[in-house]
Every structure is written in structure tokens, then in C-alpha cells.
Design a protein around this nucleic acid. Sequence first.
DNA 1: TTGAAAGCGCTAACAA
DNA 2: TTGTTAGCGCTTTCAA
Lengths: 353, 353
Amino acid sequence: MVKRIINSGILENGPKMRDVADLAGVSQATVSYVLNAKSSTRISPETRRRVLDAADTLSYRPNAIARAMVSGKSKIIGTYQPHEGKSVLAGFWTNSVIRGISEALHSQQFHLLLYGYRESEEPSLSAFMDGRVDGLIVLAPHKTDALPRQLAMSGFPTAIISGVGYDDTDAISVDADNVQGARLAMDHLVDLGHSQIALLAGPVGVPNAEDRRKGYELAVQEHNLPVPQSYRIQSGFSREQGEEAAIAALNLNPRPTALLAPNDISALGVLNACAIRGLRVPDDVSVIGFDNVPYCELCTPRLTTIAQPAIEMGRGAAEMMLSLISDELFPEKNRKYPLELIIRESTASPLIK
Amino acid sequence: MVKRIINSGILENGPKMRDVADLAGVSQATVSYVLNAKSSTRISPETRRRVLDAADTLSYRPNAIARAMVSGKSKIIGTYQPHEGKSVLAGFWTNSVIRGISEALHSQQFHLLLYGYRESEEPSLSAFMDGRVDGLIVLAPHKTDALPRQLAMSGFPTAIISGVGYDDTDAISVDADNVQGARLAMDHLVDLGHSQIALLAGPVGVPNAEDRRKGYELAVQEHNLPVPQSYRIQSGFSREQGEEAAIAALNLNPRPTALLAPNDISALGVLNACAIRGLRVPDDVSVIGFDNVPYCELCTPRLTTIAQPAIEMGRGAAEMMLSLISDELFPEKNRKYPLELIIRESTASPLIK
DNA sequence: TTGAAAGCGCTAACAA
DNA sequence: TTGTTAGCGCTTTCAA
């Protein structure tokens, strides 16, 4: 009974286009014309006024579902992150990306549906193709994930953020240029006068980490740096792994004057390792992270890092998606965003020995 | 033209119930009966098989919009955070809450729509009442926000997380018990043997902060602690404010042996202040924060804190919302969640002087 | 146990 | 410039 009250009270008894038409003394179609203001259908100012007044009086609000029904478009874009739980970034990145997506969608009267499948679930293709969303943005899929590829192949509007697109489909992709980002970090260190720069490499098989390693190697070649093979230290994304790798690095001879961590979280471990070893950052050793998580501003010393323009990436992907589904002009298919160096306190020129 | 391909290819040319019916040689209504498996309508096993086979063959997927159209329910719940940008927590809390909501909705085949209005925009009531969502969960509204109250008053299913409900409406509310949380922190310190405990109070007018202060005062009374008025230090949520207030606190005479920070971020400033003053944490001074942000695990020493069960709160609110709109049983209206003490490394017994 | 038919609230031909 | 009408894909009476 309470149910009845709620339902009929609001959802079912709100004014409909019919009611507005009756009050304005016009046909229902006319109300539709006025409200949609198509340039092709001309309505007399007088009629238009009456309709708008009536709509206003009744606080009429067009029903989005009915519109979606006839147009075949819901004006909702879905978002799905297959490996959300695994993220070491504790959602920082996702947060920013979603914010960017949301901004872009919203500015075009689109809405954002968050699909929250747990990692163990593996939703089916059709879960996304029931008409509820006009397109899907997949966040950070693995290369081996079948779903985004299948979706794209079946012609469903698909976008990928942080991952590569598929040449044989219309899928859109947006990614950060981690190779360039690592070079940025290296250039900064070299500019400061460092040449003994060690790489703490992230997990193997993770594209981000591999690209960062690639950027390191390129910079080493380009600047002709005298780094021994031992300067490449296998590490991981966690704080503990960063600390461990840093301790190994700091035992090297000659001792590196700068450490390039695979991400910010592990860089915190690096800072800790330095403290334990009694080395000052940045005086004795410079440290650079990746990602620009909020911690960078909160730790001591504040961390110099390479930032991914996550909000812009989200916004960009959403804009490309909207352009794809509206097809006013065919969008670029793949976009790479440059990373940005953010200089804080953990890098400085090496002390002259 | 590409547009046509995309649209008609997928959204418009997918198999419909009609097609399944034709293939199975039954009426469309029968397909509907089979697919919805209502206990009231009995279908012969033979027919059911044929229908299911046909649906399978065609990879038929019911159109969610059409269903929403006739049922008047979209099976989507909206989420809206009026003051998202202001959050000092950089989205940690929001993240967890959303995750909880998402889990609960998902387990009942509901979906989550994220409304991303920017703070400056002030969406209108009707923006939420266009049939797209069956209810709205408002995150951390201010007491002065008119929107959630109006929504609730007009009978729209509304839930509030971290905020008080409205007695004169059906609105649901879920909140954390910060008074109890602060007492938890105090009890812990007292148990460790502290009596000189200073409060770094959060911003005035913020309910969270005021409740934490209240809990402090209650504990002071209850344990009969000898804390002078000067032990209540006005502070704020930022790291800088925490550092500043801690410096003031550490100059007090007698010097507090423990500091209760208004949140984790400011507690990081407190840790820093201690370091600057050459005081060891927890040996010379114990520090407790609030919120259990990921930083707590990353700083040195790792921070003892009071955690809000944000995921559970999100889940709880969503469950109450679903129960409200389905009305199987009338839900409780307001729920308070207890906070939890998480002991890490920043608290210990005071050294005997 | 099944089918025919009405209709959810709206848009968009087509007519007038 | 406006009205009539036919659906959009589905659920659900009501009849058979």
C-alpha cells in the first residue's frame, strides 16, 4: 500500500504531454514540437507561448524513458572497469578519469552509468547491449580481455581508456604516453646534472610499466649515460617493493644519484629506504615517481612526479564517444596524451663530491 | 551514413520479442510470459523449451528501455554529491561509498547512475524526476541544501548518506556515529595510559568535526581527564592546519602526550610537526587520525585511526532504498553506523618520565 | 495454457 | 502552422 502511494503519487501521476496539450488547447504533437524546438517545424509564437505556459503551470517534465523508447537512444553512456579491485592506485586514477568523463557527458546532456561488476563476475556482452546505454567506455582493460574487443566487433560503440584500440573495429582509444613520460623524467634529472640514474622497473607484462622502462632506455641511449646493467632493478608498484628495490639500488657501486620509481606509491617506499640508509632526499639522492597521486603533496619531501592527465583523458574519451555515436564528424580513433613533469622537492642537482 | 550503420546495425536491428515469437511459432505474449517466468502464468514445458531455444538461437536480449516504459521503473538508482569538489578526502570516501552502493544495487539487478553536476550548477528538482532513475541517493549534503529536502517532500524516493534525514518525509538516511568514534579513540589512548590528551578540533560548523569534538568532551568527563582548556585547539582538515595546530599543542605546558587530530590528512601534518620538533611518534607523543584513508598505511609511522565503514554505509543506504521503492517491507528510516578503531603504529603508552 | 489487443509517454511521418 | 496517426518493444489484462 505504501508502494502504491509512492508509485502512483510520483512516477505515474506526473503530468504528461497530453495534460499540457489539453491545458494549452492544442494537440499533443504540437506540444512535442514546441518542446523540441526543431528548426524544421515552425510554430506560431502565440501557440508556443500557450504551450510553454501550460507546461510551466503543470511543472511538466518530459519522460526520458519514453523519449529513449522512440528515439532508440538513452543518452546514457556506460563505464566499466574490469580490473578495478586490483588497482594499486586505490582509485585515484579511476576517480579522475570518471570525473572527466562525467564533465564531458554532462555538458552535452548525457548521463553516466557506472557498471559495477566484480572482477569475478565477467559480465556477458549482452549485459551492455540492452539499450540502456548508447555506448560503453572501458577503463584500463587488460590486453587479454575479450569483452571490449567483442563489443567493438559487434559494432557497439566502444571506447577504451588506457589501453590500445582495435584496428579492425570502430572502437576508440585514449592512452597516456608513458614512454615520453619516462623520458621527461630522465631529461629533468639529466638537466639537473645526474648521470647515475637507476631504474626501478615496474611489474613485467604491465604496459604502463614496460613503456616507462622503454622511455628510460631511450633516454639512457640518447644522453649516453654511463649506467651499468645493474642499474635496472626489477621492482613492483607497492610501497614495500619500492623500498626493497631502493635498498638494493643504494647498495650499488657506484651508488646512483637518482632513482626513477615505477609509480608514486613505490616511490614512497624509496623515500623510506633513503631515510633508513641515512641518505637525504634530494641532497644525496633524487627520487621521481609516476602518477601524481595526492600523496605527492603530503609526504616529506614532496614528491617530484610524472602526471597522467587523467581528467583530460576521461573527457577526451567521452567527447570522442559522443562524436562517434552522433557521428556529426567522424572522430579520430586513437589518441595519446603526453605526460607532464611536476617538479616538487624530491629532485635536485647532485652534490659535488 | 556511418551513423546509420551504427544505429540500425545494433540498436535497431537486434532481435525483438516478435522475432523470437515467430521463430518459436508462438505469440509474442507467450514469449514474454516465458521470459518473465511469473508463477501466475503457467506455460507448458514444451512451449517454454521452444521459446527459450528460439531466444537462444537469436541471442535475444530484452530491451531494458521498453521494459522501463511499461513498468514505469527504470531499475536505475541515481547518486548525487552536491559538494564533491570541496572534499578534502580527495574522493576516498566517495569512492568507498559508491562502491558499496554499486555492490548492493548490482546484486539486485539495479544500475547506478552518477549525476555529475558541478557545484556551481544547482540542478533543478525535475532533473532527477524525469523517470530515468527510480530513486536518488544524495552524498554528504549540507544541512542547508534545499534540493534533497524538496525531493523527499515531493515524494520522490530519496536517501541521504552522511547527513540527517527529514522526519516529515519518507527519506532514508545513513550516517556514521562520530561521537562514538571519538570516544573510541579516547578510550584507546586512556587504555594506553594517556591522560594529557589534546584535541585538534576540525572546522566549526562541520557536523563530522563537531561530533568528534563532542565525543572528546564526553570522554574527558567520563575519564575525568585533567585537560586544561588550552588543550582544545581550533584547527582544520588540511595538512597545514594540522601541522600548525600540532606545533601550538606541543608548546603547551604540560605538553600533551597524545594528540587527537580531526582527520587523517591533518594528522599527517601532526606527524610532520612532531618530526620538526624532534619528538618521536609514538614514543614521545601518540597521534590518532580519522577516516582511515589509504595514506595511513603509507606514512611513517603508520597511522592509528578511526575508520568509517564507508562501503557498508553505501551498501546499507542502497539496500534501504531498494526496500523503500519495492516496499516489500517498510525499511527503517535512519541508521547510524559505528566507527571502528584501527590500531597501527602511531599510538603507544606514554614513556614514564 | 495460450493469444489478441491495449497501452506505457513520447516522436515524427503524413495530412490537412 | 497544426492535427492525426502510427509506432518504439515490451507487459498485462481479458478472452478464448
